[in-house]
Write a protein that binds this DNA or RNA. Structure first.
Length: 570
RNA sequence: GCGCCCGUAGCUCAGCCGGAUAGAGUAGCACACUCCGAAUGUGAAGGUCGUAGGUUCAAGUCCUAUCGGGCGCGCCA
């Protein structure tokens, strides 16, 4: 596609002395109101250089470029040069590209197959998968999709919380009060019961804690029986997590979690020591980070066991050695901002230049109206319940509408679960929010179902148009029929779609894509209402169908980046 | 106490590297289905952009202070 900004900057540069192409490019902006043009050049900054009043400069520039065939119209309004691109060319350029590329519209090869690791989801085994976990899971998955679309090779890692003294506790509890059948039937719930019961009983019987520690030590030393139990717990839990991942349509390339790195840490403790970074303090080993204005980082506890930071260092080095990543992205809650600052700093101090390729992508907290979520107090909302209720509601709506009931279940799942995903990816990830049933189950306005619905209706138009018209549109169309205001606005948004994907990648911010496809859907719906698409005039019909296809492709691809399906009927 | 993040319409949020009259959705109000799917569209209403200073031709956007909320700050992850 033509890069209009660059082309305009090029034209402008030829008509303005003493200002570079880059400077001009930098000055071009989009007017607040599309009625004022497609692109605008504010001339305030030029006043100093040209020693003229900005409105005069704008007038001069406007007059000098108005004959360029790139523009339909150029006008000076106060200090602005407002440029209207030739709608005919523009429409053809955008729509042809969007229908030609189809599922690849918006795709890029800037990634050049460089490897990008995205770590996300990473739940703790034996703890319920609640609504708070949706954030890392869905945001991370979408970021991975976006980088994939940008041409990078992606490794998706689920860094499971599958190790630590909690497993000693669980084994002890299982041996005392548990049984196999319960665990198999409902792994998470049962294991959580063991865990909480352990804590309750331990209040009266402190020897339990010692027993748990001893059991964990056995596990660490690879004792057969403990290993088997741990492995079994892990597998059963994973089965349950997988059920939720399947519902969400999310997958991973690796489930290597904390346990995998449990034996890889001594090397780094030693390395830190050799590099003179380690210091002993009250029996613990620490790294001082004063000169970076960060608090002390704890590497080993006074009993010699390692901590989170050491594990993350080990994991990062392992990943560098295994994958030789270009970027190593961690989608982890903002509560751990300091932790990430610390260990990335330590990596740098250890002399690993790729430390700066590790990026923490933080997100805000989910709470409930009653306050923070608490597994122990039973104040949680299970993600699976949210998904099920959303699907249920969708099913009801589909039945009510009675539209094409072929595969209700499949559609209800795509739309219901899509609604939850879309809702999660609507706002900037850094924002905290309070979970609300009303909000996730709202299917009107700026929601997933709204966008999917728009897509489904576009598909419906294409069906009604017939294969012949669609085939014609693919071959060519007369863009003069799609230059009306609402069509042009839709085309502008379609034109921006590839850039939006880039920006979302640069900022690790899926919500940028979410918002853009809402904008496209709104523009499409306005176009749909303003103009009759399937007219008697064959050429007009073909051109409009081409635009419908273009919009449909952009919406579908955008939804795919969010991890959502785009049903053709709903 | 120190550090980081957030504060824009009743509610949920956008606002590109500072640029024109601060925009959507939602709730409430008024409309539009004999018409390509009404999970839709249109209109009106709703704002001292937390507050106070400062920088600038120009500040929701940058700087300083302050208030409110969230998170974090050596033996959890």
């Amino acid at each position: 596609m033509i890069n209009y900004r660059e082309k305009i900057a090029d034209v402008l540069t030829h008509h303005m002395e003493g200002i570079s192409f880059e400077e001009v490019l930098d000055m071009i902006e989009k007017p607040a109101d599309p009625k004022m043009g497609d692109y605008a050049l504010p001339c305030f900054k030029l006043a100093r250089v040209l020693r003229k009043a900005p409105p005069m400069i704008a007038k001069g520039i406007a007059e000098s470029i108005e004959d360029e065939h790139l523009f339909e119209k150029v006008e000076a309004v106060n200090a602005y040069v407002n440029m209207f691109v030739d709608r005919n060319d523009f429409a053809h350029e955008v729509v042809a590209e969007a229908i030609e590329k189809g599922d690849d519209f918006g795709r890029s090869d800037v990634g050049a197959h460089r490897k990008v690791i995205v770590e996300y989801s990473s739940p703790n085994i034996a703890k319920p998968f609640h609504i708070g976990h949706i954030r890392s899971t869905v945001i991370g998955s979408s970021i991975a999709n976006i980088y994939d679309f940008l041409g990078y090779d992606i490794v998706r890692i689920n860094h499971l919380g599958d190790y630590g003294t909690q497993f000693g506790k669980m084994i002890v509890a299982y041996r005392r009060w548990g049984n196999r059948e319960d665990v198999v039937r409902e792994p998470i719930k049962t294991l959580l019961e063991y865990y909480t019961r352990f804590h309750k009983e331990a209040e009266n019987d402190p020897t339990l804690e010692d027993e748990a520690r001893a059991t964990f030590t056995k596990l660490e030393h690879g004792e057969k029986e403990e290993m088997e139990l741990w492995q079994w717990f892990r597998e059963e839990s994973l089965k349950e997590f997988t059920r939720v991942y399947d519902m969400l349509g999310i997958a991973f390339d690796s489930y290597k979690g904390e346990s995998f790195y449990s034996d890889k840490m001594p090397r780094f403790v030693k390395e830190l020591e050799e590099k003179g970074l380690l210091e002993e303090d009250q029996g613990a080993k620490i790294v001082r980070l004063d000169e970076y204005d960060l608090p002390v980082a704890l590497i080993t506890k006074s009993d010699g066991s390692t901590l989170y930071i050491t594990r993350d260092i080990a994991a990062a080095v392992y990943r560098k050695e295994t994958y030789d990543f270009y970027k190593n992205i961690y989608v982890v809650a903002s509560q751990q901002n300091l932790h990430f600052q610390q260990w990335i700093q330590i990596l740098e101090m250890m002399g690993y230049p790729w430390a700066r390729d590790c990026v923490h992508v933080p997100f805000g907290l989910v709470s409930m109206e009653e306050g923070a979520m608490s597994t122990r107090e039973g104040r949680v909302i299970f993600l699976e319940d949210v998904l099920n209720r959303a699907v249920e509601k969708t099913r009801e709506i589909i039945r009510e509408k009675n539209v094409n009931t072929e595969n209700i279940e499949e559609t209800a799942a795509a739309v219901g679960i899509g609604a939850v995903i879309f809702n999660e990816l609507s706002n900037y990830r850094i924002k905290d929010y309070v979970f609300s049933w009303d909000h996730v189950l709202n299917f009107e306005g700026e929601t997933g179902p709204y966008v999917q619905y728009t897509h489904a209706r576009a598909c419906s138009i294409l069906r009604n148009a017939g294969e012949e018209v669609v085939a014609k549109a693919m071959k060519g169309f007369d863009s003069t029929y799609i230059t009306g205001d609402s069509a042009h606005e839709l085309e502008s948004l379609l034109y921006e779609f590839p850039d939006v994907v880039h920006e979302a990648g640069d900022k690790y911010e899926p919500s940028i894509v979410t918002r853009h496809i809402v904008d496209i859907a709104q523009a499409y719906n306005r176009f749909y209402h303003d103009e009759h698409i399937l007219t008697d005039n064959e050429d007009e019909k073909v051109a409009k169908v081409a635009l419908v296809m273009a919009a449909k492709n952009a919406i579908k691809n955008g939804l795919a980046l969010l991890g959502m399906e785009a049903p053709e009927r709903m």
